[in-house]
């Protein structure tokens, strides 16, 4: 895009700056729209599984429900508890929201269609997603109230536990791909499964990794069955209890942006990102733009997220910790050794 602005007769610095800002808006604004629509999808899927109708009043098929909700919270009064630590209380939702958006900078939507095509893209995502715990912890502490505080403690412990195994799972993928660049990770999946499927998930060694990554990403985004930070029956609404109006909406938006990010990571790392499913040229699906495949696959994973939410009961906290530390951590470590051994034996690195 820089070249386009340069062709309009601007010098490099200006055109780079404008191109970057345009790129940020091109990602952030559709993402906000997508979050609004995906909340609607989420509610419709639960409703369908529970044999209910779901939102169906605002707009055709209830499509505008999220916008009505957004308008509602926007017009509400922002209440700050008098015992709260004011600065941190207001900073917490902003951090959650900003961090959730910042991670999208390195996601390739199509071949090369990425805002920042950096060499350490995967590490960047790991770094930014490890920041998202601060929003929750700060909110819980600054609210100066019991339930948010319990929730913040749970969130901190939970996110650290699952980040460790996510790190090892990512190492497995990086071993196969040989790079941290997300664009190249997607490219390296071309025809990986049985020579025709463009995905890592159909590799016998990486399939268990994908299952673990999916479950860990549920835990990392605090979705059911791991939503102990917002367990309604125990903690009211968890760290969001004291929040109202837009500060509450920012948490909500940030949470769904994070969920979409995890869905797209599942797509990029294990299901070939913007590549078509099969590496056969017989069918003219190489003409379909990559972003369509990317969005379709991401949407499929989001459907799986809501499916899990509607069908699986919540874990107990000790079971959650057991799964993270006693099952996923040793298993992922074992697979790092197994995969690097297999790759050395088959001469992948030479």
């Amino acid at each position: 895009m820089t070249a386009f602005f340069q062709s309009l007769g601007m010098n490099y610095e200006w055109s780079w700056g404008i191109a970057t800002i345009a790129g940020i808006l091109l990602i952030a604004l559709p993402l906000m729209l997508a979050v609004a629509m995906i909340i609607y999808v989420d509610r419709k899927v639960w409703a369908a599984i529970n044999l209910r109708r779901g939102p169906n009043v605002v707009g055709p098929f209830g499509l505008l429900q999220s916008f009505a909700d957004g308008l509602k919270v926007f017009l509400q009064e922002t209440i700050i508890p008098s015992a709260a630590n004011k600065g941190i209380f207001l900073l917490a939702p902003i951090i959650t929201f900003t961090v959730a958006l910042a991670a999208w900078a390195v996601i390739p939507f199509s071949s090369g269609a990425v805002l920042a095509n950096i060499n350490v893209g995967l590490l960047y995502i790991l770094a930014v997603s490890s920041l998202s715990v601060y929003g929750v912890v700060m909110a819980g502490w600054a609210s100066n109230s019991k339930y948010p505080f319990f929730s913040a403690m749970r969130a901190a412990a939970q996110m650290i536990s699952y980040e460790v195994s996510i790190g090892f799972i990512l190492v497995c993928v990086v071993l196969y791909a040989g790079t941290f660049n997300l664009n190249e990770i997607v490219m390296s999946q071309t025809g990986h499964g049985f020579g025709i499927v463009n995905a890592y998930a159909f590799n016998l060694l990486l399939f268990p990794m994908w299952v673990m990554f999916f479950i860990s990403s549920l835990a990392e985004t605090q979705r059911v069955p791991f939503d102990l930070t917002e367990a309604e029956s125990e903690l009211v609404a968890g760290y969001q209890t004291e929040y109202s109006s837009m500060s509450f909406a920012l948490f909500w938006l940030g949470e769904y942006a994070n969920i979409l990010l995890m869905c797209s990571l599942n797509t990029l790392l294990f299901f070939g990102g913007w590549l078509p499913p099969l590496n056969i040229d017989l069918i003219p699906w190489f003409d379909i733009p990559g972003i369509v495949w990317f969005l379709l696959k991401t949407f499929f994973f989001f459907f799986m997220f809501s499916w899990v939410m509607a069908t699986v009961p919540r874990y107990r906290y000790d079971q959650l910790m057991r799964l993270g530390w006693k099952v996923f951590l040793p298993l992922s470590l074992l697979f790092v050794v197994l995969i690097s051994g297999w790759l050395m034996a088959t001469g992948h690195f030479s």
């Binding site: 060499n119 790991l126 490890s130 912890v137 403690m153 901190a156 412990a157």
Partner: peptide
């Protein structure tokens, strides 16, 4: 950039969270 990312992952993402945990 590699060291920068490790700094954020290790210190900000793990060590400082534990600090915050204890101090809180």
């Amino acid at each position: 950039e590699f060291i920068a990312m490790l700094l954020v992952i290790v210190y900000v993402g793990a060590v400082a969270v534990l600090f915050l945990f204890v101090v809180m």
